[in-house]
Design a protein around this nucleic acid. Structure first.
Lengths: 224, 224, 224, 224
DNA sequence: AATGAATGAGGTTTCATTCAT
DNA sequence: GATGAATGAAACCTCATTCAT
């Protein structure tokens, strides 16, 4: 399967006519519906028919615009990753206050996962299939390099200031934050059963955020 | 759907004859195959036919012993949870050395996830379906209460000794450890793509274990 | 398919031992259950498994005693016919009062159908399959000759007395009575929907019996 | 299960194109084949595969147009009822000659049942299942009210003329005619075995019609 | 660009029946 | 005599996909 650059879409030109505009609209509706359906039912469980129905379109259009189910999923995947990437890049961090910035990153990441269950669900599905689609996509590879982007300057400044320990690496910090935020969201339903707390409760979410901020900061600040 | 106590299986009696023995064997072979297949392909993607083939049995026996696909999955789920629970309980911890014990728990948890990808995969599938099966099962509810069992005495001892901070709760500690171990395993394939490291590499796994042990311990020890 | 005389059953001897007695009991339980199940679901819809369950036996015994599903049905059919035949023969009619006797026959027939929905249901199923089984069975052929048995003497007496018209034939009288009684029972559920009356209501049943008695008698008595 | 008005079919518009026309044809072919198969084998015994084969279509189209086997049966049921209803309404009766008209109704009814064994078979199947489908269908309820339509004016005229007895009710007359005509047809195969006459023989059918006309008329005319 | 009609492969499940003790 | 285990054929139904306007 080959993938084309997301933005260089054949149905999108700046001077597009009504037909083209309509086409882009339909395509987007399908993509939105597909994201929702794949997030709820996974790739295998997601039904073409349900996607086209939720998009107020019909099956045939999915094949017209995306080729087949797998290509549609790939498109959903790329779009979903890209959204996350864009949101992350949009974070406005003041490197002068590394600890505050770090807290901001943690809070953003946690909130993003909570607010975008489809991102979490699709990532899980990808891992079920051993990143089969992700590893095929050029678009995704282009994003992947920048994934720890926010942390690097922040960490450097903190280390220069003597606030953060020298041993801390951006990669470990990134994975630590990801773990502590992602797990809560991705496993919230089984955790609710097992831990006996309601992980959908916002108060409990706030408490968790406070806790993991503390954990992360304790893991990076210099020893007293 | 109703579930029966796992151990009170109609095909298992201590004085069982050859027939009953054979039957139990067949049932177990199906369960093992089902665990594998559901772990690899999820509930929707898992095929009855493949399960029966891998079990060297035939489709019909699955319905004979388990009723239908969903009940089979529920059985797999319960068995998988129970295995984890038993392994956890079998951990021999010396509460006299809370830090060493804590490290043991972290290492055990991490290794268990690494060694049992089916547990991770099935948990993910359960969360995709909002713990639909887990919340229905009495067997699972029976386990759930004890899930933080190992940590409580360990934490208490550490706090009495003045090694751990008073504010630390078993629940937060449990979730912290789970996050830091689970995420690495569950998302290893997409992480490999995004972070550019091979998460299946044992050296990298060791490095991560060392890192998270450090993070967890820093999060619980008393401030200097 | 061959059929054996019903009473000459291999499992029935007057000096039977305990085992044989038990066997006959099991066989009867199966037959009773089968009658019920076939009556409710038809031949195609009737499930072997449900029959054995309702008989507190197991599938295997059905094959042990009856051979296969079709032979079981044939047995049910024969038994059901025979029951009707025996009940009919047991009618004690006073040929001296032909009209009263005729009323008795009509009432008996109607009540029998009402009280034995399984007879009606199984007859319908037989007709669906063009009397496939009935025409194969020797036992049934033996019964068939006597089917109008009650009416012949009654009719003759009435004609001799000058109460009944000479043209009336036993066959027509038999079919007329059968029609007027059977249809009410066999079609009671659709009739309830279409006619808007509750055909299960005993008052309505009584009313109908009165009506058809009148119709039949008017059809046989001599013109004024 | 919900039913839609039969005539308001999505595949039928007065200005339909070739495609829609073809679609309607396919749907009709399936319906015709289904009617035949269900009539021959009942609901349980009727096979989807046979229906699609006889319709020169494929299994999938049955689900495309009707949803499932039960809905298909419901459709067959409704159509079959409607056909009968339309034929009945089309009867051109001269109320001026009540007796002649009555004979016409009797003959029509008898002939209809003879000529439409599928109607009889499907009614029987419905009664086996206690009118499960009929009672669910709005379309059928709409028909049901008019079922004795032909008899009412005829009966009134006869009673005004002093030809028919005042006590006769349309409902009883309707049920009497139905009984005497339906039973002959519905039970013709077992009757052939039991009575020893060939109920498929047209001469015998004519004889029966003559007989029941006589019975019905004797049941309504004023006493001499 | 859009869509209803059609399809075949394959999915889950059911069923009557036989095996083996 | 009785029964649990096993089976293969076939049933209903679903699904992604293509055809034909």
């Amino acid at each position: 399967m080959t993938t084309q650059p997301i933005s260089d879409d054949k149905t999108f030109t700046s001077t597009e006519g009504k037909r083209a505009q309509q086409a882009r609209k339909t395509k987007n509706k399908i993509l939105t519906a597909a994201t929702k359906v794949f997030a709820e039912d996974g790739f295998s469980g997601g039904r073409i028919e349900r996607i086209s129905r939720e998009a107020n379109s019909n099956d045939r259009m999915i094949y017209y615009y995306f080729g087949n189910k797998e290509a549609l999923f790939l498109n959903v995947l790329e779009t979903t990753y890209l959204e996350f990437y864009k949101a992350e890049k949009a974070l406005d961090l003041d490197t002068a206050s590394p600890i505050e910035s770090l807290k901001k990153v943690i809070a953003f990441t946690f909130r993003y996962y909570l607010d975008h269950p489809e991102f979490v669900a699709i990532l899980n599905d990808e891992n079920l299939h051993r990143a089969k689609h992700s590893s095929q996509s050029e678009n995704i590879k282009n994003i992947s390099g920048n994934i720890q982007g926010n942390l690097v300057p922040l960490l450097e400044m903190g280390q220069q200031n003597g606030v953060f320990r020298k041993e801390v690496t951006a990669k470990n910090l990134y994975l630590t934050i990801s773990s502590l935020t992602y797990f809560y969201c991705s496993n919230q339903y089984t955790l609710t059963v097992f831990v006996g707390k309601n992980f959908q409760d916002t108060a409990f979410q706030d408490e968790w955020l406070k806790h993991i901020s503390d954990v992360v900061i304790r893991s990076v600040i210099v020893d007293a």
